[in-house]
Design a binder for these strands. Structure first.
Lengths: 130, 130
DNA sequence: CGGCATCCTATTGGATACTG
DNA sequence: CAGTATCCAATAGGATGCCG
C-alpha cells in the first residue's frame, strides 16, 4: 500500500520550537474540534443561513454555532454576508480555500466510513480483553 | 477544482439519529484530539518505545501519552508489544489499519502546510477588521 | 432572525508522587 | 522503563435571558 510521506515529526518539532506555531497543530486544532467538520460539510452543498444551519445540525447549541462560524470565518474558510432586510438575514458559504479543504476532508470522511466497522470491532475486542 | 463528494449531512444526521453513532464524528473525535496525529505521525516512520515517544513529542505529558496510546490501541490503529525484559520494554507500532490512515492524514497535513500562510493572513485581517 | 452576555457544569489535561 | 493514581487548573460547552 503506497503511503504518502508525512513530514517527519522531528522536522515539525525542530522547525517550530514553539509548538503553537506548528502549521499542522495550528490548523488541525481548529478543524478537528467538535463542530467544524459538520458545518463545513453542510456548507459543501450550498450556502446556509444561520437558522438553517442550527436546524440542520440539530444538536449544536446556538453558542457553539456562532463561535465556530466566527472562527472558520477568521481562518478564511467561510464567508459571511449580511442582507440588511427586516428581519435581518445572514448567509454563510465556503470560500475558495474552504472548498479546497473539502478534498482532504472527504478523504478523511471516506476513510472513517470505510473503517468504522473495523474500529468498532477493535473497541469491543479491546474491552473484552480488559 | 474537483471536489470529492462528502456524504450529505442530512444523510449523516438521518442515518444516525444518535449523533454518537455517526462514524465520522466517532472516528474524528478520537483522531482529531490534541495528540493522536502527532503520535501517529511519529509511528509512521518506525516503531517507538514509550520513553522514545515521550522524548520525541517533548511537550506531551506522561498522562496524555499513556491515555492516547491506549485509545489508539483500542481503536486498532496501533499495536502494543511488551518485551518482558528487566527493565521492561514496550514497543508501539502502527497496525495495517493505522498505516492505511496515513493516506488521508497526509492529505490533511499537506493541506495544512500549504494553506497555513493564507490562514494566518486571514486571521490577521479578521483581527484588524474587528 | 441572528446574534451577544452571563452563569454554571463537565471534560480536558498538566503536575506530582508512587509502583512493578 | 513504563506506567498508575490523585489532585487541581484551564477550557469547552450547554442553558438561559436579552437585544437590534
Amino acid at each position: 500500500m503506497p503511503v504518502s510521506p508525512i513530514a517527519p515529526l522531528s522536522q515539525m518539532m525542530a522547525e517550530y520550537s514553539d509548538p503553537s506555531q506548528c502549521p499542522v497543530r495550528n490548523v488541525l486544532d481548529q478543524l478537528g474540534d467538535k463542530w467544524s467538520v459538520l458545518i463545513i460539510s453542510a456548507l459543501a452543498h450550498r450556502p446556509y443561513r444561520f437558522g438553517e444551519l442550527k436546524r440542520e445540525i440539530s444538536d449544536i447549541s446556538q453558542r457553539m454555532l456562532t463561535q465556530t462560524l466566527r472562527d472558520l470565518q477568521a481562518d478564511g474558510l467561510i464567508e459571511r454576508t449580511v442582507f440588511p432586510t427586516t428581519p435581518p438575514s445572514v448567509e454563510y458559504k465556503l470560500s475558495p480555500m474552504g472548498h479546497s479543504f473539502l478534498v482532504p476532508l472527504s478523504a478523511m470522511v471516506d476513510w472513517a466510513f470505510e473503517h468504522f466497522p473495523a474500529i468498532r470491532e477493535a473497541r469491543q475486542e479491546f474491552a473484552r480483553a480488559a
